[in-house]
């Protein structure tokens, strides 16, 4: 009789009853207090961060009459893409009424060359600093790092003068030059740390094999450093695409990047505030960095981790 009762208890919870000899993986309950706390916190914070995005998306899909009901969290009764079309092609910014499309193409024309040029130069800088200990390398590196800490505002006016003297003030070329220079410290640091983590013997072996500065860079280092190039690309694309300050200072209305145009659309004071168009315009502007993150997120993490090991 006692045996039977013990067996019954054991069936209810054999672990607690101490009837099961511990063996193999320790049993884990799915609904433990620990899991509830962890997943509860995660859920709470993701909702907190996703809420504004949700509001923006639903609002951008509503018509103006629906928005006037004032219920921002309600999903759209009647889905309309009209605001998106308007934001892209007919919204007015100042004198032009051709929407964000102009700014989008301006931003592309600014971002693509800035990213390519800055990454090329920064990677060669980092490689030279990490692998070829040339005279004055430390001073050069210190100056570069100090450059990263000087506030941008201080440099705005001198740069205006420099660009004017060069004859590129107000042009896309001027802005590309500014972005390339300002991307240099952080990206050089990034590449230097990554190349410093490449075993030194590899570099020595290549020298014994008769490879020079450029041969080692192109044939040995470049093929090994895809992750750090992706990291650098993400930093540069998002940084340059999202830039507002340089865009508004160094360009003219016809060469405004997308962010400046977005500001002008959202902040225009004439007539009705078209919240749905504003939301759509904002989402359109944020789309490019978002797409970049989704495509290369995995490589991004790998590159960051690899570069962080050794400094």
């Amino acid at each position: 009789m006692a045996d039977v009762r013990a067996a019954a208890v054991g069936q209810a919870d054999p672990v607690v009853a101490g009837l099961v000899e511990p063996s193999g993986p320790r049993p884990r309950r799915a609904l433990s207090r620990r899991n509830i706390v962890i997943y509860g916190t995660l859920l709470l914070f993701s909702v907190y961060y996703l809420m504004p995005l949700y509001v923006m998306i639903v609002t951008s899909l509503k018509g103006m009459p629906e928005i006037r009901f004032g219920n921002v969290f309600a999903p759209p009764v009647e889905i309309t893409f009209e605001p998106w079309v308007k934001a892209w092609s007919t919204a007015c910014t100042g004198l032009n009424c051709d929407g964000l499309s102009r700014g989008f193409w301006n931003s592309v024309r600014i971002t693509v060359p800035s990213v390519i040029i800055s990454i090329l130069i920064a990677s060669v800088n980092g490689y030279a600093l990490a692998n070829w200990r040339f005279k004055g390398a430390n001073i050069f590196f210190t100056i570069l790092i100090v450059g990263a800490f000087i506030p941008y505002q201080v440099m705005i006016y001198p740069i205006v003068i420099i660009l004017r003297e060069m004859g590129v003030y107000g042009t896309l070329t001027g802005l590309v030059i500014v972005h390339t220079i300002f991307g240099m410290p952080i990206n050089t640091l990034l590449f230097r740390n990554y190349f410093a983590s490449v075993p030194e013997e590899l570099f020595k072996a290549a020298r014994v094999d008769g490879a020079g500065f450029w041969a080692i860079y192109f044939r040995i280092m470049l093929p090994m450093s895809l992750p750090i190039f992706v990291v650098s690309m993400i930093i540069q694309v998002t940084g340059i695409w999202n830039d507002f300050l340089f865009g508004v200072v160094y360009t003219r209305p016809e060469t405004y990047p997308m962010t400046v145009q977005l500001n002008n659309i959202v902040n225009s004071v004439q007539g009705v505030k078209e919240y749905n168009v504003n939301m759509a315009a904002t989402l359109l502007t944020g789309l490019v960095p978002l797409v970049i993150y989704f495509i290369s997120g995995k490589l991004f993490v790998r590159g960051i981790a690899a570069g962080a090991v050794k400094g």
Partner: peptide, 12 residues
């Protein structure tokens, strides 16, 4: 010709 402790083979 030199042989290194960590082999130093070009991984790619």
């Amino acid at each position: 010709g030199m042989v290194f402790q960590s082999y130093a083979l070009y991984p790619q």
